[in-house]
Design a protein around this nucleic acid. Structure first.
Lengths: 308, 308
DNA sequence: TAGGTCGATACCTTTTTTGGATGGATCGGC
DNA sequence: GCCGATCCATCCAAAAAAGGTATCGACCTA
């Protein structure tokens, strides 16, 4: 089979229709160029150029082959460029897992930043609970997890990307909505909408500890896993709830969010997690983007901080 | 830039994930194979394979490059195949000029035969008068001319493909239509529709000589260039005409064709003409098809010989 | 017919590639 | 934990390929 260097020789001769000038262009002398063309013709078993001692011209097969040769050279070049881009993490594809709640704050910001800074990167997003993400990280089905603690020891690299305070969600016409700030004790007296202990284990355990440390026993009206379901219940007057601040992005009409005073506080944390031995060259680049984004909290935790 | 041989090396290693086996497949030993891969990686400035001393695996960039490498090799192969096919005259494109009258008989048969025997050949047909064809043959705009005599001396190769008798065209209700066969003298007494002396010079000159040799002076009712126009005039009762037998293919209703007895006969001839120095490899192949077709007259001169 | 042009060829030099031998690292069995 | 096996990388001498100079031979021009 022929080689790409021979194609370059052929294209030069076909364009110059003159071996001497083509050789000049290729930074070589005429005899080896003649030989390369001969080898190419012998390998193909096709006469590509008609050399009539006074003029060089393309045969019909040569004309056709010239098109293909140019095409091949162009493809080879772009394959090299693409490989370099992928190796440097400027292109490629990556699978990201995220929790349902992170979709209200961090995930859109991360995706937007990646689209802006890495336009040729294909990001595929999959919503799944934290434990599922850990499993899929291990199996390699996702490259990045955006998940809640706890993060098990092992070959996982992780860093925190958001830490949001919890705020109270209550119906707009609720008496407590008039206050600018609530205390945890106020909530314990109201019917309280709680997180599911399994599907929303992180928030469930967080609130359990919160109330337990404050010595309060809330009045659970309902258990739900999804924040939007919880806000819908609040809206219907079923009770009040504690939700991460980014829930403001849902703009649930008729529901107001109020800061809540607590003795013992712990923010809702989201971690960027990846396997230490994942060699996808995009990973360090996207991790950098994710870290930069986490460093400027204003733009992340809540895309619109006005709490109505 | 890299070479195709290096792509073949890379594909083999990527598929075997084992340098030794890949080298075996490539009919070489392992050390040069290792080096070729290293050269490829250095040229690209991209790590394609992760060699962990116990296992070989593709990096993400390598995975992507493998796709492109396979694609390039496939394209190179098909470019070579196509060049060979074109050189052998099994593929390619050819420009054919033809006269208006030949479109009723020989041209469709030739095109059909080419499509059948040379399915990958692209035939472009251009109708033009014989003199125009000679000009375009000379300039290289057409490769083949299907034209009427005379054919000038020069670097043209030509052979006759059809020789059709002239037949009389007359209205179905004409008194002479009852006869199975007419004599030329019968026609000289009728209003006669004649060919244009310039645009249809061949037929004009042919008929002029015909009548002159028979010592007849026809009564010219009208001069026209195109056979279908002439038949339309016959249909309208403007007069009678002499047309090549293949005009039967037009199936002009209300017009009948009758053989005509002549002392001095000359058929309407059509020639396949090409430049001697045209190196289109399709030419000899198509000339062969054309010659074969000419050798079986039944299928050509008239696709439907029944003269109504 | 002499001089110039241009691709092919001959021949030599340089570079590249090849393949056997070997090195070094890792894994598995005992 | 040692030993042998496996496997890729490296070294080196030999072979092959490519490149360069000089020259040939055909052809065109003057």
């Amino acid at each position: 089979m022929f080689e790409l260097s021979q194609l370059r020789c052929f294209v030069a001769v076909a364009e110059e229709l003159h071996f001497g000038r083509a050789a000049l262009r290729l930074n070589m002398t005429q005899p080896p160029l003649s030989r390369q063309i001969q080898i190419l013709e012998r390998v193909l078993d096709v006469r590509l150029l008609e050399r009539s001692n006074r003029a060089v011209r393309l045969t019909p097969a040569g004309q056709r082959f010239l098109v293909d040769a140019r095409h091949l050279l162009k493809l080879a070049e772009s394959a090299a460029v693409l490989a370099r881009r992928m190796a440097s993490g400027k292109a490629g594809s990556i699978n990201i897992g995220f929790t349902a709640t992170s979709a209200y704050s961090y995930v859109p910001a991360l995706v937007a930043a990646c689209r802006r800074e890495l336009p040729d990167v294909e990001i595929s997003l999959k919503e799944m609970v934290s434990s599922e993400q850990l499993k899929r990280l291990d199996s390699g089905e996702i490259d990045i997890g955006l998940l809640r603690p706890p993060i098990p020891r092992g070959n996982l690299d992780a860093f925190r990307v958001t830490a949001e305070p919890l705020v109270t969600a209550l119906p707009g016409d609720h008496p407590l909505a008039k206050a600018a700030e609530l205390r945890l004790e106020d909530l314990a007296r109201e019917p309280f909408i709680m997180y599911e202990p399994y599907e929303a284990r992180y928030f469930h355990d967080l609130l359990v500890e919160l109330f337990s440390r404050a010595g309060l026993v809330p009045n659970y009206a309902q258990h739900l896993a999804q924040i939007h379901s919880i806000l819908a219940m609040v809206h219907s007057g079923v009770g009040v709830a504690l939700v991460p601040e980014a829930a403001a992005n849902l703009r649930f009409s008729g529901v107001v969010l109020r800061p809540v005073l607590m003795q013992w506080q712990r923010p809702a944390e989201l971690f960027f997690v990846r396997r230490g031995d994942n060699d996808n060259p995009l990973l360090p680049v996207i991790a950098g983007v994710a870290r930069d984004l986490a460093a400027q909290p204003g733009s992340i935790q809540s895309m619109d901080r006005s709490i109505q």
